[in-house]
Amino acid sequence: MDGFPAGRARHSVQVMHQVLLALLPGIAALLWYFGAGVLIQILLAGAAALGSEALALRLRGLPVRAGLGDGSALLTGVLLGIALPPLAPWWLAVSGGAFAMLVVKHPFGGLGNNLFNPAMAAYAMLLVSFPDALSRWPAPLPLLPEDQPWPGLLAAGHAIFLPGAAAIDAVAMATPLAAFRDNRSLLVAQFYAADPLFAAGTFAAVGWETVNLGFLLGGIYLAVCRTIDWRTPVAMLTTLGLLAWLWNDGGSSASAGPPGLHLLSGATMLGAFFIATDPTTLAASSSGRLLCGILVGILIFAIRAWGGYPDGVAFAVLLMNLAVPLIDRGTIPQPPGTVRQQRSRSP
């Protein structure tokens, strides 16, 4: 026992639980629009992450129960499960969860020391390895044919665990970002009217906009609780929105997409509030965090507008992670009353 009065506000385990809680609105929206497969993916990835974490802790000779109890592995698994297409084959979630823990997190020193966000590194690995499986999302609920019911546990489980014999494939549909990308000839307004996803949507594509708003809601809760730093998401969303507005071209056929599309499609809100804000892989100072947000915003837009992938959140976050040591080095805040001195090697 150490002489140290208690009374600290929150425990690091509570932090993880709070983040999981904040994910619920987004998950609920995903579940409603894309079926029970979402739940299965989250459970699969979560279980794989927890199992691999236990294995890694055991191999490193660290206490397994305490390590699992901190909730960080579960959070990684859940984030990965959310990012995966709801009907993707089971081995994607499992290998992704294992990759996140065994390759991205523990070799770098485990909790608090990993250079890259484990969930996004795993997602990026899966995306470059299995691009087709990762881009096959089902149609959102309002666009399902009359005879197709909401994919329940049975139907989704069938598609996930027996990927060969899947009848659900028939309703697979391009994601809004991919659909917009493939548009070559129509004006934005024409495209919005012609594409079923956008025709049924309010701000952007139906389903996807609700999911993004769900994550936005949870993210605002976290920012208000000061669990995450508001600077990163605000900087990232502002940058992304601003760039989209600049390159919107007034909605011409060469438009890179209006701000609404970029802000409420793909993994934008999930990335802004739950991925880029991962403190372990984020810069330390306030100004550094602001810079990180701006960098991610620029990279997401660049990849979406000019890169080879419809969405770029995972790659943008990973590239930002790579720049963090440098950003940290250049953004040490100046304590009050001190004068900025010449950089010097000697202490």
């Binding site: 720049a323 040591p325 440098l326 080095r329 010449q342 950089r343």
Partner: peptide, 12 residues
């Protein structure tokens, strides 16, 4: 990043 790191380190 490496170039900057070097530049910052050597500046002093």
């Amino acid at each position: 990043a490496l170039a900057w790191e070097r530049a910052l380190t050597d500046a002093g």
